[in-house]
């Protein structure tokens, strides 16, 4: 027995932590990557073949749903949360805003079976793929076996999304002292304001600590979403949501789990003036963050350095040219 294709390399900067994801079930082959890419962009995953992963996860906006506070899916139905970005997923320790999904390979089961998103069963998806000549052939190329299973479908999707890594922003080049990484005084100032006020939760280099925090948002009484508590059934987790990465934040609007803020200015205004006191409020926010107008501007300028155009416009991650 031998691994026939090992042509994918999972690269990341040497000073980054080790990925959390265990790659052992993936073939790390170009064929599996391309199969996953086909699946990611194919509405065959939804009940009526109208919604694909890319419907809510667009590459140019950091693989999230731009311009929608709550993401919508099949039949125009609207969900209860803002779709998350897809990048550097191998470092995530859990998935979704409430951490309900415990493994990258199983993440796709949630949108596929959610009645507001794709409203399909995995068993039906597998049946549809098994009836497709195109997919039978693509699965054969990966596994030397054309039988499609739920596991193989998820592994292919994983092989695609786990490669969606962003580490070539201006900020990264600044850290690595590379060409294109020269920070202006304003950006440098923004970075130090960031490190002083934001980095305890949005920790470099991934800009998240993978934990759940109550960041003091007012409860939206039209949703009454208590976040992590719905998963753990522990009142200590009330109103806690996953700390999201800030990479490519310039393009991932709207912000927060329910997409309530359309601009980063509103986000900063929240953290400096509108944090709601409660039992589960993050300790990091108990003392009000104070920023002058100029400091806010510098911070916003810094946040733009987290934009990674190489990632956002990488043709390998875009809609596949279908000659199959």
């Amino acid at each position: 027995m031998a691994i026939k294709h090992k042509d994918l390399f999972f690269d990341y900067p040497e000073y980054w932590p080790k990925p959390n994801y265990d790659f052992s079930k993936l073939s790390m082959s170009e064929n599996e990557f391309q199969l996953g890419r086909q699946l990611f962009y194919d509405p065959i995953l939804s009940r009526d073949n109208t919604i694909s992963c890319a419907s809510c996860h667009l590459q140019a906006t950091g693989f999230t749903h731009v311009d929608h506070d709550l993401s919508h899916g099949i039949d125009g139905r609207i969900g209860t949360r803002n779709s998350m970005t897809i990048m550097n997923l191998a470092w995530n320790t859990s998935f979704m805003w409430d951490g309900g999904v415990n493994h990258l390979e199983l993440q796709a089961l949630a949108p596929i079976s959610s009645e507001n998103e794709m409203d399909e069963t995995l068993a039906n998806v597998v049946d549809k793929l098994n009836e497709s000549k195109k997919y039978k052939s693509l699965f054969f190329q990966v596994h030397q076996d054309s039988l499609v299973t739920g596991q193989k479908t998820f592994l292919a999707l994983t092989q695609f999304v786990v490669m969606l890594n962003s580490y070539n922003s201006k900020y990264d080049k600044y850290i690595r002292k590379e060409a294109g990484g020269d920070f202006t005084e304003q950006e440098k100032n923004g970075l130090s304001i960031f490190r002083e006020n934001c980095a305890s939760c949005h920790k470099e280099p991934l800009f998240t600590i993978n934990e759940f925090k109550n960041n003091g948002l007012k409860v939206d009484t039209t949703l009454n979403d208590y976040g992590r508590m719905l998963i753990t059934q522990n009142s200590k987790d009330s109103l806690k949501f996953k700390v999201p990465t800030l990479r490519n934040i310039q393009f991932t609007a709207p912000y927060m789990h329910d997409g309530r803020f359309e601009t980063l200015q509103e986000v900063l205004d929240h953290y400096t003036a509108d944090v709601q006191e409660s039992k589960t409020l993050a300790t990091e926010l108990k003392k009000t963050i104070q920023l002058s107008h100029i400091e806010k501007v510098d911070l916003l300028v810094f946040l733009r350095t987290l934009t990674d155009k190489e990632f956002l416009f990488d043709k390998r991650f875009s809609f596949p040219n279908n000659n199959l």
Binding site: D22, K25, M96, G100, V101, N102, H103, L104, E105, L106, L109, A110, I112, S113, S114, T121, L122, A123, V125, V126, T149, G150, Q151, T153, F154, L155, T158, I231
Partner: peptide, 24 residues
Amino acid sequence: LNTSGANSGDLDPSKGMFWSWQSG
């Protein structure tokens, strides 16, 4: 097996015995 990702055979997630919004 609840925390090791997508499994095969009778444990395949397509068997309808795996929760989607809360893994397990």
